[in-house]
Simulated scan of single mutants.
Amino acid sequence: MSAEVRERVLELVGTGMPLAAVCRVEGMPSRQTVYDWRRRDPEFGRQFEVVAEFGRVLLVEAVSEEYQQIMHDHPPKIARRWWNARHRDLVRVNSKFFGGPY
């Protein structure tokens, strides 16, 4: 794969997009290919971890802003249901980072 494809993978992961979703984008490699790149190229592996962490932080910030708006616009019970549903989604994306056994 070209350096451009590797850079695009890093760019998309850095936006908070899960690797599985990145790999469904046309022209992107399979998850196994990305895992192989990470294993075979330590520098790419380090870059991937940095941008993935940044992407997760962006997700936390976005969810926090959404939750603040939901709390402002709806009763606490509705806001709590929204939070629980969103948290389950995040845990499915990365259970180690977002915690919880969903």
Rank of each mutant, 00 (worst) to 15 (best):
V5N: 00
T15M: 12
R46I: 02
I70C: 07
G27E: 04
F44I: 05
S64D: 08
P42Q: 09
L59N: 10
S2I: 02
S64A: 03
F44W: 06
E11H: 12
V57D: 07
V9K: 10
A20N: 12
K96E: 11
R6E: 06
R56A: 04
D41H: 11
V91C: 12
N84T: 09
R38K: 15
H87E: 02
L90V: 04
I78S: 10
W83R: 13
F44P: 07
R31P: 01
R80W: 12
R81F: 02
G55S: 06
Q32F: 02
D36T: 12
R81K: 14
K77C: 02
Y35V: 01
E61P: 00
R39K: 15
V57M: 12
Q47T: 00
A21K: 15
E11G: 00
R6H: 09
A62Y: 03
E26K: 14
P18A: 12
G16H: 13
Q68W: 02
R88C: 11
Q69Y: 01
S30E: 08
M28E: 03
F97K: 09
E26F: 01
R24G: 05
F98Y: 15
L12M: 14
D36W: 08
A20H: 13
P75W: 07
R80C: 04
N84Y: 10
L10H: 09
L19S: 04
A52H: 09
I70F: 03
G99I: 01
A79T: 07
A20Y: 13
V25N: 01
G55A: 05
E11W: 07
R8W: 01
R56S: 06
I78M: 07
L19R: 01
Q32I: 03
E61Y: 08
V51F: 14
V22I: 05
R46L: 12
A85E: 13
T33G: 00
N94Y: 08
Y67T: 06
R86A: 14
A3P: 00
P18I: 08
G16V: 12
V60Q: 13
G14Q: 11
P18F: 04
V51T: 14
R80G: 00
Y35L: 08
F54I: 11
Y102D: 11
M71C: 15
V9E: 05
Q47G: 14
H74M: 06
R40T: 03
W82D: 01
R24I: 02
M17Y: 05
V57S: 07
P42K: 10
R40V: 03
Y102W: 15
V60I: 10
A3D: 11
V25L: 11
T15F: 02
K77E: 15
R39L: 12
